[in-house]
């Protein structure tokens, strides 16, 4: 059966080449499910599109591209695998509503159980911007404040710091967006190359985006702190974006 909308059929070539404007492309996409003839014609053009994609002598990118890419990938992988590993759930609440099995970095996961939010979290990791540097002194009993990184896409005017006093840490934030209904900010900690662990530290922010929470345990037990947007009862698996991150 031939296409009843020849003007759309004429767009198949440009569509295959990516040469349609947004309006044309939308019309073709809407048309394809209802026109077997156009689907077939588009399939016939697929080898051409693939040939054009590869009609270039291969050239390897610089080693720096690989090194930078893999460093970021491994960092994000470690974060997610850490959150999936056995660990203490937040004590402020019964823990996750979605049960998850322990697993390691090489184990295949059930794709259906991987929340879409993980991709968002990963994207947020990439956009972290260092917001400040240590403010206070580095030794002695006096409290010291350490500037933390804030994801500028999520909190353009946000700031965060870890205040260390008497061997214990306290996260103080300003200008952070309020989490959606039913969600709160949660603190995660990590030490060395170990995987981040969820903590019971959950907090909200006021109308100005200000908030604070004590980080459980001694600062000697961790050297990295993250804050993510999680279900109100807390989670042992990251499900939301990393908003704040820094080294203690």
């Amino acid at each position: 059966m031939s296409c009843r909308e020849p003007q759309l059929a004429e767009l198949l070539g440009p569509f295959a080449l990516g040469a349609c404007d947004d309006d044309e492309a939308a019309r073709v996409r809407a048309h394809l499910p209802e026109c077997a003839d156009c689907r077939r014609r588009l399939e016939e053009l697929e080898p051409v599109r693939l040939a054009l994609l590869e009609d270039v002598p291969p050239v390897r990118p610089s080693p720096a591209v690989r090194a930078t890419l893999m460093a970021q990938v491994r960092e994000e992988s470690d974060l997610f695998q850490a959150a999936a590993a056995p660990g203490a759930p937040p004590s402020a609440a019964p823990g996750p509503t979605r049960g998850r099995s322990p697993r390691n970095g090489r184990r295949w996961l059930d794709r259906a159980r991987r929340p879409r939010a993980l991709a968002v979290l990963a994207a947020a990791l990439a956009a972290l911007v260092v917001a400040g540097i240590a403010i206070g002194g580095g030794s002695g009993p006096a409290p010291r404040s350490i500037g933390f990184a804030v994801d500028r896409r999520l909190a353009p005017r946000g700031s965060a710091q870890l205040v260390v006093d008497g061997g214990r840490g306290r996260i103080e934030v300003a200008g952070l967006p309020a989490p959606a209904a039913g969600r709160r900010y949660q603190v995660w900690v990590a030490r060395g190359s170990g995987r981040p662990r969820p903590t019971s530290a959950l907090f909200d922010v006021d109308g100005r985006g200000d908030g604070a929470v004590d980080v459980p345990g001694s600062v000697a037990d961790y050297d990295q702190v993250l804050v993510t947007d999680e279900p109100a009862e807390g989670s042992r698996t990251p499900t939301g974006a990393v908003v704040v991150r820094g080294r203690a």
Binding site: R60, P61, V65, R66, M70, V73, E76, S77, Q81, G105
Partner: peptide, 16 residues
Amino acid sequence: AMDADAFEVFYDRHAA
């Protein structure tokens, strides 16, 4: 499933 080793293989295979 966030397997960085698998990604590395995939990258090396198609990067050029």
